Amino acid sequence: MSLGWLTRRVALALLAAFGVSVLVFALIRLVPGDVVTNLIGLEGNVSAAQQAEMRRMFGLDQPIPVQFGHWFGSLLHGDLGVSLRTDRPVFADLLLRFPVTLELTVVALVIAVLIGLPLGVLAALNRGKFADFASSSFVLIGLAAPEFWLAILLILLFSLTLRWFPPNGFVTWAESPLGNLKSVFLPGLALSLGLAAAVTRIVRASLLDVLGQDFVRTARAKGLPERIVIYRHAMRNALIPVVTVVGLQVGNLLGGAVIIEQLFGLPGVGRYALEGINLRDYPVVQGAVLWIAVSFVLVNVVVDVLYGLIDRRVVYS
């Protein structure tokens, strides 16, 4: 892997993030209404002159290209703007909320790998048998079931019936480590089942493909134990498709946990973006989406780097 390739890859990732930010900037302004409209709905009757003054105060009276120029100029200096609703810096709010989303993503990823990897291996080693059928059934259910539906079922079972976990809310690690784990386990489990199903499917398919290759037959012919053949030789070569799926899903989890964060009352980036959309808080939406886009493309860069570490045959130049 060369430094030039890595530089080009990061530059392309940042360019993609910039394209997303421009698209979001334009699309959100096509939605009827703005933050002033929402504030008027909360505060009652406001005269036309007062509405015009509020739009001037927020900078919404300027042409859209001028608004974009101001926002992008501030972005180049690391300033994502100030929330029109709370008057707080968007970047500071994102820094406060990102650890919640990151923790949720890590919990979901760990659960998905702990479920999907063994099931995929078990299905591949027992092709056509009951374990393979059971694994395939789990894959179908996991990929078909919506996350919000699973979340509601988990709340009904583990929160309202068994009372093992809180139905919503978030407890920081500093307040209570056990309470923190309880507050993120159910939402993490709801997010993880679809990813676990995808990991199971790709591990099974990739491992079956690798087990039919010549180097595996050679290892078995040498008399190596089956455990060594599977886990030291076959699994290493079967991991690249798995890393691809997991890497893409991590990017999706970092930005796609909006519904789960809303259902469980987690103060993460996804919920922050949803609040900004509902209130037409342009700086919040633009900053949150840009943050999510940058996170997604950076995860893809890390996945590309991992390719070269897992399989030495993959060379970037």
Rank of each mutant, 00 (worst) to 15 (best):
R227P: 10
I292C: 13
I228C: 05
M235N: 10
D304A: 08
R227K: 10
N300M: 12
F264R: 10
A196L: 09
S176L: 02
V302E: 13
G223W: 11
L248Q: 03
F215H: 14
L253H: 01
G251R: 01
V229N: 10
W291Q: 08
L208W: 03
E261N: 08
R280K: 15
P241A: 04
L266W: 06
L224F: 11
R232D: 11
I230W: 03
E226H: 12
R220C: 08
L290W: 13
P225A: 14
L195A: 03
T200K: 12
D304F: 09
I259T: 08
P187G: 05
L248C: 00
Y282W: 12
I230K: 01
H233T: 00
E226Q: 14
L290S: 13
R271L: 14
P225W: 09
Y272R: 05
N252C: 00
P267A: 03
V199T: 06
W173F: 15
V302R: 07
T244K: 03
S295I: 07
G255P: 02
P241V: 00
A221K: 08
I292G: 10
V250Q: 08
G256K: 02
V289T: 15
R201M: 05
V210H: 06
Y231F: 15
E261F: 02
L253E: 02
T218R: 10
L207E: 09
L248P: 02
A205D: 11
A234K: 08
V210W: 06
L253T: 06
L253A: 02
V246M: 07
L248R: 01
I260V: 15
L239Y: 03
A293L: 11
T244V: 09
P225T: 12
V246F: 04
V184G: 06
G255Q: 02
I260A: 11
N278H: 13
Q286I: 15
W291I: 09
Q213W: 00
L195E: 05
I260T: 15
L191R: 06
P241Y: 01
Q262R: 13
W291M: 15
V184A: 07
I202Y: 01
E261T: 04
I228S: 12
A219G: 13
V199G: 05
L254K: 07
P283M: 14
V285D: 13
